[in-house]
Design a protein around this nucleic acid. Structure first.
Lengths: 178, 178
DNA sequence: TTGACAGGCTAACGCTGTTCGCCTACGCTG
DNA sequence: CAGCGTAGGCGAACAGCGTTAGCCTGTCAA
């Protein structure tokens, strides 16, 4: 029962897995300690034998999400070396749409970096920094991608909006002129 | 005690004002019905004589925020007609940094458009659509601006990140080449 | 055999949004 | 002027939240 994820006990990993399943299946509202406990056939207070608090549990899920998205981003740039930015954008959006509740959890609040394994955040960022050419550009592109994603997830674009076109506009703006 | 903001009773407006002050001064965590009531020297249940529920109260605050940001955006494009995108970006960021808790409330969840006065959302969007040249481009620029803003507010950029430079990179990418 | 410990449990605390029924004071109407 | 409706307070309470305290039981080592 320590700070970062890797050092979790086997039972704690089961708690994390149950919590993530619950979150992904039923959303943030259903993600309560009592419901997580239900999934494990246990009472809520028992969870605290394995995980110090909910925030740490969330951090463990976030760490998983960061690691998995890092893998996808790495694969994307390898798959399309000619237009890495476009490939990354597609991978970014796909991951978020496949895991909307997870994506929200990963981004909606300040990151508790102290509860994350080292470098997991940097690894997820690396492919983009490489593709964008500079960190500043990478941050701008990330902002665009995150903005598109979260605005779409939150239903902020009008129902008739052509989200794909907006993505293309942004990607075109950030890609080097051909 | 009806759906949208304008039709609120005078006392209900006081509730909204107190709620907004509390939110802006102390953040979303402190924004509870009991604390709002405290500000008015009243008990929490009494608020329900004026406002149907917290979500409607939030919507009223969001409507104020949208109206005020619309004014700022309109002023920004007027002030710098040569580079309206840059002016809008500056106005956008300034508003968010001046009202971080309000900005979060305005953007972090799906919009209850049914609780908002008609057109308030559209009015806030209009200056950007004009400056960007097309709705798709406007959505891409908005995504960039919102992404930059919320990532900055959430402390997602590294502490040593040069946020200004990232803003400039994005603005440059979206501005027509000079 | 004893004892430590892992891992469950119930009860409870303070907090949240919200509902209920009650009470009081004000203003309109007969 | 009497009566009454209503606006706007109130306390008590409910279910649900994260979390803590204290207890108990089963397993395994010494």
């Amino acid at each position: 029962m320590s700070a970062t994820v890797e050092e979790l006990s086997p039972r704690a990993r089961e708690v994390v897995a149950a919590a993530r399943e619950l979150l992904e299946a039923e959303g943030a509202e259903a993600f309560t300690m009592r419901h997580v406990a239900d999934r494990l056939g246990v009472r809520a207070p028992s969870l605290y034998k394995h995980v110090p608090d909910k925030e740490t549990l969330e951090a463990a899920i976030i760490a998983e999400g960061l690691a998995e998205s890092a893998e996808r981003f790495e694969a994307a740039v390898v798959a399309d070396r000619r237009r890495p930015l476009r490939a990354l954008a597609a991978a970014y959006r796909a991951f978020a749409l496949e895991h909307p509740h997870l994506y929200r959890l990963m981004t909606e609040r300040p990151l508790r970096r102290d509860l994350l394994p080292p470098d997991v955040e940097e690894r997820a960022a690396a492919p983009l920094v490489e593709a964008a050419g500079s960190v500043d550009r990478a941050r701008a592109v990330w902002a665009f991608a995150h903005g598109m994603t979260i605005l779409e997830l939150n239903g902020r674009f009008p129902p008739d909006a052509d989200v794909e076109r907006a993505w293309r506009e942004g990607i075109r703006a950030f890609e080097p002129p051909r």
